[in-house]
Design a protein around this nucleic acid. Sequence first.
DNA 1: CTAGATCGTTTACGCCGTAAACGGTCGGGC
DNA 2: GCCCGACCGTTTACGGCGTAAACGATCTAG
Lengths: 266, 266
Amino acid sequence: MAKTTSDDHRDPDLVAVQEGHAAASELTRPAGLDRDRILTAAIGFIDENGLSALTMRRLGATLGVEAMALYRYVPGREDLLDGVVDRVVETLFDKDDGDDIYVEDHNGWQDYLMRLAHGVRRIALAHPSVFPLVASRPPAAPWVRPPLRSLRMVESFLGTLTEAGFPDQAAVAAYRAYSSFLLGHLLLEVTQIGAQVSLLDQPEGDPEAQANTDLTQFPALLRTEALLSLDKSAAEFEEALENLLDRLERVLHEAKNSDGDVSDLA
Amino acid sequence: MAKTTSDDHRDPDLVAVQEGHAAASELTRPAGLDRDRILTAAIGFIDENGLSALTMRRLGATLGVEAMALYRYVPGREDLLDGVVDRVVETLFDKDDGDDIYVEDHNGWQDYLMRLAHGVRRIALAHPSVFPLVASRPPAAPWVRPPLRSLRMVESFLGTLTEAGFPDQAAVAAYRAYSSFLLGHLLLEVTQIGAQVSLLDQPEGDPEAQANTDLTQFPALLRTEALLSLDKSAAEFEEALENLLDRLERVLHEAKNSDGDVSDLA
DNA sequence: CTAGATCGTTTACGCCGTAAACGGTCGGGC
DNA sequence: GCCCGACCGTTTACGGCGTAAACGATCTAG
């Protein structure tokens, strides 16, 4: 029970992610170190072994090299992690991350926000163990809010919305509501993936005994456990996203009718 | 600029937090170790020095004890962190966390969700460095979603909503939407606090030179930077929370009119 | 041919989590 | 009164961590 998706409808973001897994694993390639190769290896390592398993020595080993060799290209472990985050986030600007491009080429701000949201979601699903890092690493400026972490992304967001007629204040409010929405949804989604994985590789005796920890004293939980275990991430993401867009559209129309007003959406 | 609140209206959750800061610091008390004392010290330590500074040796030192002494009461560092999270989260059930009690005593489900949201927000603001832990530690069951991390909290949530007339499916959907909302908002809020703090204790030369990293190539950012720096966390939290409650109320009424229907809110 | 730049290795240091052995200080049964 | 186990903090020790510094080896330009 509680499979990742039901069998008739597949999650389009997940499909895009799975189809992209063609790159060969690194594992003890000859040599020719390089900051880019290091970052790529680090991302792959975290994807496979989890963030806490990443050490300079082990990362060096997967590249066929001693730990200290990495320091020619990376100032230290913290900066390496920053690099990983930047790298993962910047794939949004790649020409096609799956099937659509969103930046600088879109049909209105709603289409833009949709593409952006699904783009970020694909990143999260492609690198579930990296995403918490995207969420928690201190951003470039205090007013930059993960997961839209780069000045370029924020500029693109605000530029698109103001061009579409949002007053500056409404665009900024939209940026904040949008990032909260993305962060909350996606962090919970990747956390759930991680939890499922870490349960699977620890059978630890009876495979069924540990799952239900005597919910007898929690009647509502007992009754709804099957519902709680259902994965509706994709549908809920879509629903919440559309709700947010509706809310923003309402704000935009109000702003257009009464021009100089600045009271709404906090 | 960018003060925490404007000067005419204070953030009630923040005020509640600040007024509660009367407990004396621990710092080399004689002896009498105890799991509770250790957890309290750990929380205080993280609040003051950040999560990454917490080591068994240093925590022992603040308690006037060697690191190994802690292992009589705590299985290891990871379990210590779990204990910290549990402890911080369980303060929600304390008789009065500030000025109101929410559990088992409320005026309808909307009042309950309001009290709960503000209760969790007070926790986040009281322990900004602990909250990311609350968000990221794997929960007790895969379907438990931070920051409502304990079976008790989930039971309370679902029980209250189903008693108020929500069908099970709608209550579960509400639980998911609600936790996404809380996590996104509060994680971003404490991240911002952390970023401001870490900027302040590193003056690093000219106090103004580092703030603006040549935004000249980002026109929308340049134009809205002042707006972006404004802190409207409390108002936005309230706004988004009320919006969510409205959405849930719509769902509830639809469910009441067409009884056996199960199609809405994903 | 040689001098310097380039780049990976080796060695070393201090800190980490924690296993294991140790000692000191009690309170209750003989 | 004495002793002996239980309790509880300390000491010692080990392997792994991030990383500074010294050290080769290998290429390339003059």
